[in-house]
Design a protein around this nucleic acid. Structure first.
Lengths: 110, 110
DNA sequence: ACCAACGGTCAGCTGTGGCTTACAGTAAGC
DNA sequence: GCTTACTGTAAGCCACAGCTGACCGTTGGT
């Protein structure tokens, strides 16, 4: 249960791209078809397809075929992976700060 | 309270790189000097310096000069930015699922 | 004062990620 | 059955991220 970093890696890499984040954030308001998603972005439709494929591989979105339309929605798996990794990091960071405050109670360096 | 995405973008992009994540994770166990960090990685020392600069710009780490040594430690600012963005995403995802379950009470799709 | 160590910066190369255009496939409507 | 709409895939191009080797400034030791 210590190797949750693997899926988190893909999710982080996927969300590093601005266009991908934009698509992902737009899915917050509900499932959307590819064409509809492509209409709100500056890049072409194929580019959107590729981005969605990356997001899907990272477990961040999930697709459902409906006729010729392909509807994408958020998959919590990827988000959960990031959250788990983040919580793990928080533990280390806090531990680090505990030692820091112990040595330097002022703590004004920034 | 809606534009916390900006700092999160830099933090996500910074943590997308595997080497950078490795360095960051190593800092979990406490502050380390550049040379020490470089010794545990396969890349050269200049590369480590550049990676640390990126992490610092993203608010993920903080440096302290001590003699000729430069000690890096985790800065919670970047982590907090990601967490805020993530929480924002969770809201949308859960809302999405509520509607999903409303339409499909079975909820076995995965 | 000299020397050694540590680390940031520069110049340049290379691999790869993201974009586009063109094409192929499938489902719906008439 | 034919046409139209919607999407994924292939090939290719270009820009940028990441790496290296060399250099420079600074600090500490003797």
């Amino acid at each position: 249960m210590s190797k949750k970093s693997a899926p988190a890696a893909a999710a982080l890499a996927a969300l590093a791209d601005p266009t991908r984040r934009q698509l992902f954030e737009r899915l917050r308001s509900g499932p959307r078809a590819v064409g509809e998603l492509a209409r709100g972005v500056t890049v072409s439709r194929p580019a959107v397809s590729q981005h969605l494929a990356v997001l899907k591989a990272a477990g961040l979105v999930r697709d459902t075929a409906t006729g010729t339309r392909r509807v994408y929605e958020i998959d919590p798996k990827g988000l959960a992976a990031i959250r788990a990794w983040l919580d793990d990091m928080w533990g280390g960071a806090l531990q680090n700060f505990a030692a820091d405050l112990d040595k330097d109670p002022a703590g004004k360096e920034n």
